[in-house]
Design a protein around this nucleic acid. Structure first.
Length: 395
DNA sequence: TCTGGGGTCCTAGGACCC
DNA sequence: TCTGGGGTCCTAGGACCC
């Protein structure tokens, strides 16, 4: 029996929040984002979109398109409160809710819908209820898989409601432009177009006629896409919060620079930020990665995996500094970032060691990492070498 | 005055072990 | 003795999403 999978998307969420805070902004072109170097539009109102303003657009460009655009700095605390209100609202209907980001969720309405003879009216009522209680507007997509529900919520905005049954795929999904397909971005779309694929339906047809060509282009993704288009994609809702796989921070510098001392100052701030977040999440990481964008916007990653996991700012900073110095000393850069990867739970680590050892380990991890590094290079047992190195260190 | 910042997942080559 | 093949880990880069 098919499930009823719903995707709910809050329309122009940040911009709508600003309108709720200050109703005089309603029906005006507004955007959340900051001015100046590297300022971009985070979200804009539908009025602003009429002028061609889009999210991700540099703010100066948005201003050019729409001189009367009202730029508002983000009030992320307020957005977070509104976001929680939204999720709590959905959870009143079903506990099977998966939050995908601040402004969207998947939910399993299979049980809720049983016995409802007018599904459309049911979701319309829900949509109005959300609006009346919170002033938030949303688009709702109802289908049998996550992919189709997502495509459905995207089909009509704002305040859209779209139901896609399996038999509607050809009618609703296939005529859409290929770039409107979830998972196809601005790199893959042109490649598909060069094969004569302009719509999602074209893609599906080519999957039958020119299988090898399309497969070569899409790799492993081919099978996933095919399943999606046949209505056989995943219909599972993940209720539990997913464990982060990495924790990172990055920043665009106020000016391009090749001064390593300048960069180190930013690396220090980033290291502290990453450390703080890792500790809050109770995670340690084995791998540190730095990311750099040069003045032409090309990005580079360099990473390093250590023997023992860590999350103290000191180790993060020292390793990042090292990675930077060995790879980018001569580069003029505009952005730098640090990411901690290969994460494990602190508990898992602490259980293996005694708590006492763990606390000590945390304090000394920077020293210990160094010891391990030396040990590895000498290929000698840890404890023996550690005592020797300590002695050396004290002398 | 081009292009934020947070992520996830995939690919591919090389090192290394057996 | 100069050479196979499988598996895993590490690293770098790229595509995509919100």
């Amino acid at each position: 029996m098919a499930k009823v999978i719903v995707h709910i998307d809050l329309n122009a969420f940040y911009a709508r929040c600003e309108e709720i805070k200050n109703p005089s902004l309603e029906n005006k072109p507004i955007a959340v984002g900051h001015e100046g170097r590297a300022g971009i539009v985070s979200t804009c109102s539908y009025k602003a979109r009429e002028f061609g303003v889009r999210s991700g657009m540099p703010t100066f460009k948005a201003k050019n398109l729409c001189p009367q655009l009202i730029l508002i700095p983000g009030d992320y605390r307020f957005y977070s409160v509104m976001s929680k209100t939204f999720f709590n609202f959905v959870k009143r209907y079903t506990k099977l809710v998966e939050m995908v980001s601040v402004d969207e969720c998947f939910a399993d309405f299979t049980e809720v819908i049983k016995g409802q003879d007018d599904v459309i009216s049911f979701f319309r009522k829900m949509q109005m209820e959300l609006f009346n209680e919170t002033q938030l507007t949303c688009s709702i997509g109802v289908s049998v898989t996550r992919f189709l529900a997502k495509m459905a919520s995207n089909y009509q905005k704002p305040m859209g409601l779209t139901i896609i049954r399996r038999r509607d795929i050809k009618k609703i999904i296939f005529p859409l432009k290929i770039e409107e397909m979830f998972g196809i971005g601005k790199k893959t779309a042109p490649k598909l177009k060069s094969l004569g694929i302009n719509t999602i339906g074209d893609l599906y047809v080519k999957m039958q006629n020119q299988e090898e060509e399309v497969k070569h282009l899409l790799g492993k993704f081919y099978d996933t896409l095919k399943e999606w288009l046949e209505g056989k994609g995943s219909d599972e809702i993940e209720i539990e919060k997913v464990d982060p796989k990495s924790i990172g921070n990055s920043t665009t510098l106020p000016y391009d620079t090749d001064d390593i001392n300048d960069v180190n100052k930013y690396l220090l701030d980033l290291a502290k930020e990453v450390s703080l977040r890792a500790k809050k999440e109770e995670k340690l990481g084995y791998t540190i990665q730095i990311v750099v964008k040069d003045h032409t916007f090309k990005s580079y990653n360099k990473s390093l995996t250590l023997e023992n996991p860590f999350n103290d700012w000191n180790t993060i900073y020292e390793q990042a500094k090292q990675l930077y110095a060995t790879n980018f000393r001569e580069t003029t850069i505009r952005l730098v970032g640090i990411t901690l990867q290969n994460l494990i739970d602190i508990q898992d680590m602490a259980v293996q060691m005694s708590l006492f050892d763990y606390e000590k380990y945390e304090e000394e991890s920077a020293t210990k990492l160094l010891i391990n590094k030396i040990n590895r290079s000498l290929k000698k047992p840890l404890l023996k070498r550690a005592s020797e190195v300590k002695k050396d260190g004290n002398s």
